[in-house]
Design a protein around this nucleic acid. Structure first.
Length: 461
RNA sequence: GCGCCCAUCGUCUAUCGGUCAGGACACCAGGUUUUCAUCCUGGUAAGCCGGGUUCGACUCCCGGUGGGCGCGCCA
């Protein structure tokens, strides 16, 4: 037997029907969600249907929370399905019906195995089998390696293979796209489709996602569940893009693609058949890239949300001020959850002092004095704008014969508590004269007296 | 143990018998930014090993090695 697979064809009829069939027994693993992404991309590419089947027959481990988590994850990633989800437990009668059919046609027989009671076995055709996998190519198996197997347990419930195939028939699935770990099962599934008189679907088995040791990627290797990436502040678009490219190459030298582009380019001919290693650093780069390319208005929204989540605001922020700060932060944001620590000082006076930077930049001979002089100049600066602020600073430093950089760094830490951040002058302009003057005063009070050698212990309290 | 599958820079990959083996991430160096980030330049870095086939192999074949998956009354 041989079943040709035409999944790489560019011109499939618009009757393509694929499904994502997870078991709701916990959080959704990224390997799993990638299978969903590939199914979705394939369906959208061919104008077909992407369906969802929840394989909740494992009553012990399936929970309503897990089902909800699953639906949330799909929504978050924008993996919309075209028909109401099918719950496998609802299909139970059909499974039993199929068993009867197989029994009646002689494709199945009753028997016993091990200690248990009577079960129903499926009778394999007893011949060598071959099928064409869209990513792995021609796969074959000798008849002797394809033994009969149980399809109905002694307690009367169907096993995975039977339920899976029956549901695929019921749902009219034309292409089965799933994880590599199901490759060997495919021979059994094909035999079942045949025995039930159904059309055998096309198959595509996706390579696994592995860790640095080449072992299946798990929680021990870092974030492994969709929910974790979401909590860590990754954008769904970035995770989607990264996962789509893990094992698939859109051709050319493309890395960042819109969904539309991915849909247009998706093809199993370009899917790798060897395992892919998860590289969080590239995901991080991609996430930052998506943040940089994000429309400013959207960034402002997300920025505000992240700051709120970090408990930064004591009062609702002034919209205009918020936007000005956001404009300074967008290009240097890698993860939204980092923002409260990076930009919290823009919104509250009780920001943390990075003592190491304070010692390095502020607690040096003559520097507090210099900061004091600059502060005095600022009180009368005609316009509190970047260019004026810079000119004034240069002048102040020059007069004292000190490198401007020394004063810049000192002022930065004095007004923000940090050693890094946006350009100093635009930062000062954004903060505004009142805040800057007040903060410089506070810093001088706090650290100013420790400006001379031997007085450092006063500083870091 | 048996069976099936896989193998290009550290990582993701391009290549589909003839390329200086290309790109991206990461890393290193330089420039811009007086910080960080961004941005721009440049650089280091790969065909698992051994046989064939061929005028010519990363590409095809065989063997080896390494790795993965499967072999449930789990899914």
């Amino acid at each position: 037997m041989c079943y040709r697979n035409e999944m790489s064809s560019k011109s499939l009829p618009s009757t393509v029907r694929v499904r994502f069939a997870p078991s709701p027994t916990g959080q959704i693993h990224i390997g799993n969600i990638r299978a969903a992404i590939f199914n979705w991309l394939f369906a959208r590419h061919h104008g077909g249907k992407f369906l969802l089947r929840i394989e909740d027959t494992d009553r012990e481990r399936s929970t309503p929370e897990a089902v909800q988590g699953l639906l949330d994850a799909l929504e978050w990633l924008g993996l919309d399905y075209d028909e109401p989800p099918v719950y496998q437990t609802d299909e139970f009668p059909r499974h039993l019906e199929a068993v009867e059919t197989l029994l009646a046609r002689g494709h199945a027989y009753r028997g016993t195995k091990g200690e248990g009671g009577e079960v129903v076995f499926f009778r394999m055709p007893g011949e060598d089998m071959i099928f064409e996998d869209a990513v792995k190519g021609r796969l074959e198996k000798k008849a002797k390696d394809l033994p009969d197997f149980v399809i109905l347990r002694s307690n009367g419930t169907p096993v995975f293979h039977l339920a899976n195939v029956v549901d695929d028939i019921t749902m009219g699935i034309t292409h089965v796209i799933r994880g590599d770990d199901h490759v060997e099962n495919t021979f059994r599934h094909i035999a079942l489709f045949r025995a039930l008189g159904a059309t055998v679907p096309h198959y595509a088995h996706l390579p696994m996602i592995v860790n640095a040791q080449g072992k299946p990627y798990s929680k021990r290797d870092g974030a492994a569940f969709v929910g974790e990436f979401r909590e860590k502040g990754y954008l769904p678009e970035a995770l989607f893009n990264y996962l789509a490219l893990l094992g698939w190459s859109p051709g050319g030298d493309r890395e960042i693609l819109t969904r539309k582009e991915m849909i247009a380019l998706f093809d199993f001919a370009q899917v790798q058949s060897s395992p892919a290693q998860m590289d969080v650093r590239k995901l991080d780069w991609m996430n930052a890239e998506y943040i940089r390319r994000m429309p400013f208005e959207l960034f402002v929204e997300r920025f505000q949300a992240a700051m709120e989540k970090g408990g930064v605001f004591s009062d609702p922020p002034d919209p205009a001020y918020l936007r000005r700060v956001a404009a300074l932060m967008q290009v240097r944001t890698h993860h939204f959850p980092d923002l409260p620590a990076m930009a919290g000082f823009f919104f509250r006076e009780d920001f943390a002092w990075d003592e190491k930077t304070v010692r390095k930049r502020l607690l040096k001979p003559g520097i507090p004095d210099l900061v004091r002089k600059y502060r005095n100049v600022l009180t009368t600066l005609p316009r509190f704008e970047a260019s004026f602020l810079e000119e004034a600073l240069q002048a102040t430093a020059n007069v004292q014969g000190v490198p401007a950089a020394d004063l810049i760094h000192a002022v930065r830490v004095a007004v923000s508590g940090l050693g890094v951040g946006p350009g100093l002058f635009e930062m000062l302009e954004t903060l505004g004269r009142a805040r800057v003057l007040a903060r410089l005063e506070v810093a001088l009070q706090r650290y100013g007296m420790a400006g001379e050698e031997g007085a450092k212990e006063h500083g870091a309290s």
